[in-house]
Design a protein around this nucleic acid. Structure first.
Lengths: 339, 339
DNA sequence: TTTGACTATGGACACGTGACCAGTATTTTT
DNA sequence: AAAAATACTGGTCACGTGTCCATAGTCAAA
C-alpha cells in the first residue's frame, strides 16, 4: 500500500510538500500541485486514517451499539446514522448487543481500543455498564444515548416520548371501551428499566383502571417470549380484551399466537403495537401502531454526536420525539359478553 | 486516555516490560507481572488498536458492504458475521451501498483509508468497482464476495445456488400447471447481472415455455418498483398466473399490489418468493418461499475471510449453498379460464 | 576460574501521519 | 541598495505500539 513518501518520491518532492497537496494545496506552486496530484492518482494513494488519527488525536470514527440488528427499528437507525455520519467524513463501527450487557461490555472495550471519537448507545437493559461509559466520557469520548436510557444516565439523548405514546395508546383503547388491557413488555427497576412498561400501571390508574396481577410478567423482549406469554394470557379465565405490545417484535409474536388460537382481530381481541413495521400493514386487518419517527431520530442522534465531538464540554442535550398513532383496523370495541 | 507508558510508570517498570505483561507474560517475574496487571486495571488501560495495527501491519478490522440494511437478509448477515468475527478479536466496519455503486466506491475508499485486513462485499449491481477492488486485493486486502458476484469476479465467494433455486421454484410452479409465469427482478448484462433473473428465460425454455415479452422489465430491486410493476403486469390482457419474486423485498411490493387489486392468493394468482421473511408467514395465506440459509452463509463468509487474511495467497474458495422450498399456501393450480 | 546458558529487564527504532519550524529564492517596500 | 515581506519547499519530531537487540545478574557445566 502506497504511502505519502511513495507519492513524494514519484512526484520528485519532499513528503512535506506532498502532504500539502492534500491539506494546504493553496501553498503549492500550481505545477508542483499538479505533479503531486498525478502521483496520487497513479498510485491510488489513500491516506492512512489510523496514522492520521494517532497523530492528530482526532479519530473521525463513531461507534454505534444497538439492541438487535434484526429489528427494523434498529436497521433503519443504523442506515440513517451511517449515512449522516458518512457525509461528514466519519466512519461508523456497528455492534449489536443482543440486549445482553455482557456482549455490550466487550463491544465497549473494542470501541475503546479503536479510540472512537463518539459513542451512540442503545444500551442493553440495566445499568452494569454505566460506570464504564462514564469513564469513556471522562476520556473525552462523546456519548449519546438512543431509544433507551441507562438509569441515572447523565448523557445527552434522543428518545421517543415513551410515556406520552403509552398514554396515547391507552386512551385510544380506553375510549373504545377496553377495561382489561394487558401490555406485552415488562418493567423491573434494575433489570428492565423500560419507560413504556413503567408508565403502564400509572396511566391505567389515571384512567381508573387496575392492571390485573395475572397479566404481569417479566420477559425478555423477543418475539418468541411474546408468543408464549400471549398464549398464557389468552388462556386465563379472564383474558384481556386488548393487547398493547411495547415493540413491533413483541407484537409479531403475539399476532402469531392469536392467530393460532383462532382469535379474530378486532372482533375477539384488539391489538395495538409500537413500531410501524412492514408486516403490520400487510396482514389483514392491518395492525394499529404507534409509529416512531426513526429516520428523524437517527439523524438527530448523528448530528448530536457530531456536536458533542466538536464541543466536548457542552451541557447534555436531551431530545424527545413524539410518536404517531395509526388506526388501521386491529382495534375495536370489545364484545360485551358474560362480564 | 492512558497509554502503556502510563501503565509502566505506575508499575515502576519500563514500557517494554509493561508491554510484555500483555504479550509475553511468561517472560516476567511473577511479582512484576502482578504489579503491571494491577496498574492496567487501575488505569482501565486498553491498548490503542490503531497504533498496534500501524506498527504491526495487521489491522484486525474487516469491512462489510451490504446492499440494504433494511432488508432482513442483510440484517441477519451483518449480525452473524459481526458475531463470528468478534469471537476472533476482529472489528467490523459496516456500510450499506443502497445498491448504488457510487456510494460503494466512496465506502471502499473509506475502508482503504482505514486499512481493513479483509472485505466482505455484496456489491451494488454492475462492475464499475471491480478494478478498485482488484487493486485492494493487490494491496493485500482479503476479498470475499457474498450473495452477488461482480461479472468476471476472480474472488472467493459465498453464494446461494441461485440457478438451482430458480429451477426448484419454476418446476414447482410448472408442476402446478402454470404456463404464464412472470418473474419480478431483472437482468442486464452490465447494469443488473443478477443470476436469478438471468437463469429465468433459460429455465423456462427447458420447460418448453417462453417468457412473454410483455412481462419483461428492468427495475431497481425495491419494494416500490415491484408494487408498480405488479400493477402493470396484472393489468395486461394476458396477465401471468404466477409471480416469482426474486427477493423478499420485491415480494412485499407485489403482495400489496395484488391485495389492492382484490386478487386472492392462491385462487386468482400464485405468488412465490425468495427469502423466508417474517411477514411471509404472518399473512394469510402464508407465502411460499425459497428460504436461504442466511446464518450459515454469514458464518461461512466470516470464516472464509479469516482464512484469506491468514493465508493471503490461497486459491479462491467458491461455495454455493442450496435453498429450501417451503410450500405454505400461496401457490395453487391456475384457474382454467378463457384461455 | 572460565565459559556458556538462562532469567529478567530495558532501550532503540519504525509504522505513516500532522504540526511546527527552518530555509532559500523572489518580489516588494523603504 | 538595503530591508522586509512573500512564495515556495524541506526537515524534524511525536502520536502509541510491536519488534529486535542489549545488558545485568544468576547459576550450572567444563
Amino acid at each position: 500500500m502506497a504511502n505519502i513518501t511513495d507519492v513524494a518520491r514519484r512526484a520528485g518532492v519532499s513528503p512535506t510538500t506532498a502532504k500539502r497537496a492534500i491539506h494546504n494545496p493553496e501553498l503549492l506552486a500550481p505545477a508542483t500541485l499538479k505533479r503531486v496530484k498525478r502521483a496520487i492518482a497513479q498510485l491510488a494513494y489513500e491516506p492512512d486514517q489510523r496514522a492520521a488519527a494517532l497523530r492528530s488525536g482526532h479519530s473521525r470514527t463513531v461507534g454505534l451499539i444497538v439492541g438487535n440488528i434484526d429489528e427494523p427499528f434498529f436497521a433503519s437507525l443504523i442506515r440513517v446514522i451511517s449515512r449522516t455520519l458518512r457525509t461528514q467524513g466519519y466512519t461508523l463501527l456497528v455492534a449489536d448487543n443482543e440486549y445482553d450487557t455482557r456482549n455490550e461490555l466487550q463491544q465497549l472495550k473494542t470501541f475503546q481500543r479503536n479510540r472512537i471519537a463518539g459513542l451512540i448507545l442503545r444500551s442493553g437493559y440495566g445499568k452494569p455498564n454505566l460506570k464504564y461509559v462514564q469513564r469513556m466520557k471522562a476520556n473525552d469520548t462523546a456519548i449519546v444515548e438512543v431509544d433507551f436510557l441507562m438509569p441515572e444516565s447523565p448523557f445527552s439523548h434522543v428518545m421517543l416520548d415513551n410515556a406520552g405514546c403509552m398514554k396515547l395508546g391507552l386512551e385510544y383503547l380506553h375510549g373504545l371501551g377496553h377495561r382489561r388491557i394487558a401490555t406485552l413488555g415488562s418493567y423491573h427497576e434494575t433489570i428492565l428499566p423500560d419507560e413504556r412498561t413503567k408508565a403502564f400501571p400509572e396511566l391505567m390508574a389515571d384512567l381508573g383502571l387496575v392492571v390485573s396481577k395475572a397479566y404481569e410478567r417479566i420477559i425478555h423482549p423477543t418475539s418468541a417470549e411474546a408468543y408464549r406469554i400471549t398464549h398464557e394470557l389468552m388462556a386465563l379465565p379472564e383474558p384481556p380484551t386488548a393487547l398493547f405490545a411495547t415493540t413491533g417484535n413483541l407484537a409479531s409474536g403475539a399476532f402469531q399466537a392469536l392467530r393460532e388460537r383462532g382469535l379474530e382481530l378486532p372482533k375477539d381481541i384488539s391489538l395495538l403495537s409500537f413500531d410501524n413495521y412492514p408486516w403490520t400493514h400487510m396482514v389483514a386487518p392491518a395492525v394499529d401502531v404507534i409509529a416512531q419517527p426513526v429516520e428523524d431520530m437517527g439523524v438527530a442522534a448523528a448530528e448530536m454526536i457530531l456536536r458533542e465531538i466538536e464541543t466536548p464540554d457542552r451541557p447534555a442535550e436531551q431530545v424527545r420525539f413524539p410518536g404517531k398513532l395509526m388506526k388501521r383496523g386491529s382495534c375495536a370495541s370489545p364484545c360485551v359478553t358474560i362480564l
